[in-house]
Computed example of a mutant assay.
Amino acid sequence: MSKIAQRPYVMSIAGFDPTAGAGILADIKCFEQNETYGFGICSALTVQTDSEFLKNSWLSVTEIIDQMAPLLYRFKVAAVKIGLIKDIAVLLEVIAYLKKHQTTIKIVLDPVLKASAGYAFHDWDAGLKHLLPVLKQINLITPNYPEMLSMGGQEEVFTAAGSWSAYCPVLLKGGHMKTHIGTDYLFENKKMVELKPSVTKVYQKHGSGCVLSAAITATLAKNHTLLDACKHAKKYTEQFLNSNESLLGHHKLQFTQ
């Protein structure tokens, strides 16, 4: 058996970003560097650059499942990351299909409410009411500060994240916070762990949130704990952010996991 075949199989269900800075292409690059084998399922086609978002076209739930079905039949997929997706109804159908066909699969949801260039995809406010059926079926959700504020119904973000963690662990990403910028917070069962940055300066990148959640997914697929997966992914993302000064980063694992 070849070495690559021995790697865990992971899946990204996300948008196709032609820049490869975010979405499926970024996730696959991240999976590869984190020593897993990645499958890519397209949920939307986007028209964009690294700094400008023009439009997107959604794929239907049938089109998404048609892509997943043969892969789930042939391969044992250890973990899946779900990014940009049309709405909660599609999300629930996708999760149900995953759970039906591979009951032990680990699912990381990276909610994409707005493109980094400013284009709004969803407005999932009052999110706990609508997302509770989702949270009960996944292993982690990774909102940033504005996303948690919106999905939490404008409730204070730490309070909202703590409440949500009774149903599903929450990694509150700190890149958009006004204070303690770069510090992430992992909530599990209403308990919080602070994950401080290991660098003092970073260069902003298109798709950094995608990279973080993809690195977590890959690490979970290798049976690391959630806390260790988040710590590893944070270091990987910091390395990605500082790979150059442009908006498009380079993927390379340069530290011991």
Score class of each variant (00 low, 15 high):
Ala166Leu: 15
Val157Ile: 13
Gly182Ile: 13
Arg7Gln: 06
Ala160Lys: 07
Thr49Ser: 15
Val134Pro: 08
Lys3His: 11
Leu71Arg: 01
Tyr203Leu: 00
Lys235Met: 12
Glu194Pro: 00
Ser246His: 10
Thr19Leu: 07
Ala117Ile: 09
Ala44Tyr: 05
Lys3Trp: 13
Ser43Asp: 06
Glu238Thr: 13
Asn56Lys: 07
Met177Tyr: 00
Asp17His: 11
Ile4Thr: 15
Gly23Met: 10
Tyr236His: 04
Phe255Met: 07
His232Gly: 01
Asp110Pro: 08
Leu247Glu: 01
Ile88Gly: 03
Gly127Asn: 10
Lys29His: 08
Ser2Phe: 05
Ala120Phe: 11
Val77Arg: 01
His122Ser: 05
Glu238Leu: 12
Asn56Pro: 00
Glu93Gln: 15
Leu186Ile: 02
His206Met: 08
Phe255Gln: 10
Ala79Arg: 02
Ile41Cys: 05
Leu226Trp: 04
Ile85Pro: 00
Phe16Gly: 00
Thr237Met: 06
Pro197Gln: 11
Lys29Asn: 14
Ser198Met: 07
Ser163Gln: 15
Gly40Asp: 11
Phe31Tyr: 06
Asn34Leu: 14
Met151Tyr: 02
Ser43Glu: 02
Tyr119Gly: 09
Asn56Trp: 04
Thr179His: 10
Gln67Thr: 12
Ile64Arg: 07
Gln48Asn: 11
Leu132Lys: 15
Ala115Trp: 06
Ala166Phe: 11
Ile85Gly: 01
Thr103Ala: 14
Phe121Met: 12
Lys178Thr: 06
Lys55Phe: 07
Ile88His: 03
Tyr97Asn: 06
Ala218Ser: 03
Ala14Glu: 10
Leu247Ala: 12
Gly38Ala: 11
Val61Arg: 11
Leu45Cys: 09
Lys29Tyr: 04
Lys205Gln: 09
Ile41Arg: 05
Ile65Ser: 10
Ser12Ala: 14
Phe240Pro: 01
Pro70Gly: 08
Ser2Pro: 05
Thr200Asp: 05
Val77Ala: 04
Ile105Ala: 04
Ala89Tyr: 11
Met68Thr: 08
Pro8Ala: 10
Ser213Gln: 07
Ala5Met: 14
Gln204His: 05
Ile141Gln: 07
Asp87Glu: 09
Thr237Ile: 03
Leu186Thr: 03
Gly175Glu: 07
Glu194Gln: 13
Lys106Ser: 11
Gly249Phe: 02
Ile141Trp: 09
Ala161Phe: 08
Leu171Asn: 07
Ala89Phe: 09
Leu212His: 09
Ser2His: 05
Gln102Arg: 05
Ser150Lys: 15
Leu109Gln: 04
Ser43Asn: 08
Cys42Ala: 12
Met11Lys: 04
Leu92Ala: 12
Pro146Ala: 13
Ile216Tyr: 02
Lys99Ala: 02
Pro169Asp: 01
Leu140Asn: 03
Thr217Glu: 01
Lys100Trp: 01
Ala117His: 10
His224Ile: 05
Met177Ile: 07
Ile41Pro: 03
Ile105Tyr: 04
Lys76Val: 02
Val157Glu: 03
Leu241Tyr: 04
Met148Phe: 08
Gly40His: 09
Leu132Trp: 11
Phe187Asn: 03
Thr200Met: 01
